[in-house]
Amino acid sequence: MKITTQNISKSFGPIKALDDVSFQVDHGELFGVIGPDGAGKTTAIRILCGLSKPTSGEIMVAGLDVYRNANEIKKNIGYMSQKFSLYENLTVWENIRFFAGIYGMRLKDIKLKGRHMLERLEIEHLRDKLIASLPTGWRQKLAFSIAIFHEPQIVFLDEPTSGVDPVTRKQFWEMIYETAHNGTTVFVTTHYMDEAEYCDRVTIMTDGKIIALDTPEQLKEHYNAKSMDEVFRKLARNIE
């Protein structure tokens, strides 16, 4: 599934959170949006998921308008918010069942897939533990696994690695990488520049505008930088 946005803008009163943003994400691509806090990343992801309406502009997902065909699209997308939103007073299994259930999955399929998923994450022993008792890293991996449990064609991840230790972050990116490799389009935001290296293509945002969009290699070459962090620093200097 492709995502195409054309000239989207979003204003909250006098503040322009998104200013005339256009880009395209290809099928099966791992697409990263990088930028400091307040750059408009979350606003962008919320608009793409249909949680918020743009002030102007058009968004097409798989050739369908996000607002006019919301119900068609919703079945085919997955979403993970910044807070790894799982229900804390439900067990691991109850969370899996609930979220799979609201996507209309059948109980038989949920049981089978759920078992595989827990095996893959190596947390079968935590099946009946409350989410509240899990460490952050496990919650995050579980939240991601649940977001892609119904096999969406696109998954949106809003700062999935915030507040997670570096080792878990690395493992997590491997999970994302694998997902994209299997043909799911991944749209991910982050404020960690080093994470950009994992992406197929990266857009760098500040103040609601896209200031660069390319593969990490091209960006590094173009700005004559060794790392994405350096790319960003040079870009920031250019703006000032």
């Binding site: 919320r46 998921c49 249909g50 949680l51 119900n71 919703k74 079945k75 997308i77 979403y79 993970m80 918010s81 910044q82 807070k83 790894f84 939103s85 799982l86 229900y87 804390e88 979220f99 609201i102 996507y103 209309g104 977001a147 949106f156």
Partner: peptide, 13 residues
């Protein structure tokens, strides 16, 4: 507060 509302709103519910 937990952010689960957004997940619900994104879902087909």
């Amino acid at each position: 507060e937990l952010g689960t509302m957004e997940v619900l709103l994104v879902s087909p519910l």
